[in-house]
């Protein structure tokens, strides 16, 4: 059985101009020990779908799904209290802006230990020991000293490592990474991606990578879902996606990569858009 299984998920937002459907009928499943990449451009609803799973959407959003089952628990009928217990412990999430995800008023050590106290009910010395161990795992040098640092005293890459340490603190079964490296430099991106993938393999977690970057997909994923305007365009394992993309949108996206440029010009997604617009009348 899959770790997370979602059937026919839709998310709508109430706005001043009526309801806007950010996600329309997405099916999704992740197994333990699997890296699933959800790739799409801005506005494709890739983050919204995962925020809906986490229950982190604002009140203006309405979430509907046929089923949303995580590790045997039905997330749809679950009470807020049950959900909070699972989220943060069994499902963890890291975000794009590591600096903004950490509270600037507290040391990173305090923020990490807070999670351990809340979810694992550890006492103080055990917490400290575990925190040091976690910092070592995510590759922060001199963990004893770094625990007492404030977020602004660390670089972006270091902060993202702290976020990962907080995320894996309770040995989650599923880790959702929302554009974890978009705000980071290429060399740091490489380190963070390697760290995420090695942690995933070591702990046997499920990992969902939300990204817009085909390079990140190619470097990390086992299986890929391509999303466009709230709909799923294609689902395939990573090799066949890059080797023989089935959906015209994926094909267009791949040929728009500068490294795939043939001759002087890049192919664009515009042709795909045209087809999309033409078939909009008959599409379901």
């Amino acid at each position: 059985m899959a770790l997370l299984e979602i059937k026919n998920l839709s998310v709508g937002f109430d706005t001043s101009t009526g309801q806007f459907m950010a996600v329309q009928g997405i099916d999704l499943s992740v197994d333990a020990r699997e890296v699933l990449a959800i790739v799409g451009e801005s506005g494709s609803g890739k983050s919204v779908a995962m925020l809906a799973v986490m229950g982190l959407l604002p009140k203006a959003a309405t979430v509907t799904a046929d089923s949303m089952i995580f590790d045997g628990h039905d997330m749809l009928t679950m009470s807020g209290k049950q959900r909070r217990e699972i989220i943060g412990r069994d499902v963890a999430m890291i975000f794009q802006e590591p600096m903004a995800s950490l509270n600037p008023c507290f040391t990173v050590g305090f923020q990490l230990e807070e999670v351990l106290r809340f979810h694992m009910k550890m006492d103080r010395p055990t917490r400290r020991k575990r925190a040091i161990e976690l910092f070592k795992q995510v590759g922060i040098p001199a963990p004893e000293e770094r625990l007492n640092s404030f977020p602004h005293q660390m670089s972006g890459g270091q902060c993202q490592r702290v976020m990962i340490a907080i995320a894996i603190a309770c040995n989650p079964k599923l880790l959702i990474a929302d554009e974890p490296t978009t705000a980071l430099d290429v060399t740091i991106q490489k380190q963070i991606l390697d760290l995420l993938v090695s942690l995933q393999a070591k702990h046997g977690m499920g990992l969902i990578m939300i990204t817009h970057d085909m390079g990140v997909v190619a470097e990390t994923a086992d299986r890929v879902i391509v999303q466009y305007k709230g709909r799923k365009m294609e689902e395939a394992d990573v090799l066949s996606l890059f080797e023989a993309p089935k959906s015209p949108y994926t094909r267009a996206l791949l040929s728009a990569l500068p490294e795939n440029a043939t001759g002087d010009r890049l192919s664009t997604v515009a042709d795909f858009m045209k087809n999309e617009a033409a078939s909009a009348g008959v599409a379901p």
């Binding site: 490489k190 990140v216 190619a218």
Partner: peptide, 19 residues
């Protein structure tokens, strides 16, 4: 050299090697 090594490679060969 570090910069080049860190840039994600999205060609089929690299993916195959990684898998």
């Amino acid at each position: 050299k570090t910069l080049f090594a860190a840039t994600p490679k999205s060609d089929v060969e690299s993916i195959r090697a990684r898998l």
